[in-house]
């Protein structure tokens, strides 16, 4: 079921991309992460890199930050704003970037 939802959203997003060269929802949301995590999600100072990480590592962290099970200084305050689908799609986006 979960996979079906993700596939549908991915399909919808790709259709949106096909209609116009505009950045889609997840691209815009992923670019928001780069303010702290640096260009291309390569990390900045001690703020960790995101690009090329395993998707499961990213989802595990983000779901952990969202629930509070994973301790953080600031990420818990951000992750609570994300829907489960957004977490999955963001993880997919960053894991697909070349390490």
């Amino acid at each position: 079921m979960h996979l079906l939802i993700i596939s549908t959203i991915t399909l919808l997003l790709s259709i949106n991309t096909a209609i116009a060269a505009a950045p889609n929802k997840i691209k815009i949301m992923a670019d928001a992460c780069l303010t702290c995590h640096g260009p291309n999600g390569a990390g900045a100072g001690k703020i960790p890199e995101l690009k090329g990480l395993e998707k499961s590592d990213i989802t595990e962290s983000l779901f952990g930050f969202k629930s509070g099970d994973e301790k953080s200084t600031i990420m818990g305050r951000y992750a609570k704003a994300l829907s489960d689908d957004e977490i999955n799609l963001l993880a997919e986006y960053f894991s697909a970037l070349d390490k």
Binding site: L34, T35, C36, H37, G38, P39, G43, A44, G45, K46, I47, T73, I74
Partner: peptide, 17 residues
């Protein structure tokens, strides 16, 4: 201390971005 270290990372990230 961790937040101070991340603050420096944030500055590097946002200025590059």
């Amino acid at each position: 201390l961790k937040e101070a270290i991340f603050a420096s990372g944030w500055y590097k990230g946002i200025t590059m971005d």
